[in-house]
Amino acid sequence: MSEKMLDNGDVLEITTPLTDETVENLKAGQRVLISGTIYGGRDSAHKRMIAALDAKEPLPVDLKGQVIYYVGPAPAPPGRPIGSAGPTTSGRMDAYTPRLLEIGLKGMLGKGSRSKEVKDAIRRYKAVYLALVGGAAALISQSILESEVVAYEELGPEALRRMKVKNLPAVVINDVHGGDLYEQGRAKYAKGGDRG
């Protein structure tokens, strides 16, 4: 970690599950190292969880205070807990996310922009969205100590998994205060008017 290069204070070490207090302390641009238990799931696992909620069935895991990492890892080679495991594009989970925040999900890890509905829900339910470096999947896998499938095994790379992580490097994108690093970072470095 090159702590000297920080834009916004020091690297903050946080542990899961997340409390309101931890989440309120996290501001867009803050770099963090996450340790503890997190859950991994992407498109199909989200679809199934929402279907369970619609049918008033219990979720396979209790998401209160928890963090979901949008990941579909590569298979684990012999002797490793997991294969390469970088973030997938979070926007595809936008349709499902507010429901999960409503039942107590506190953190999301992924990459890429979120919808207005998700950003509003982040503020309403006191949660946080962080990004990992997309495409740095071999590096990220070094911070994952354990991984087990906890539901929807038949989905293969899209199964829901529980992972133990140590010092997983992430950056706060959307915070409870309405901060958005994607907007702030772009505005800070844009030159000569944005033609897009």
Partner: peptide, 26 residues
Amino acid sequence: AGLDVLEQIERNAKISSDTGLPLCQD
């Protein structure tokens, strides 16, 4: 923050070629 990302990309490429883990899970 951008520089830090570029460094992580370089470190990732090294780990990938050293361990045989794919560069990206995708």
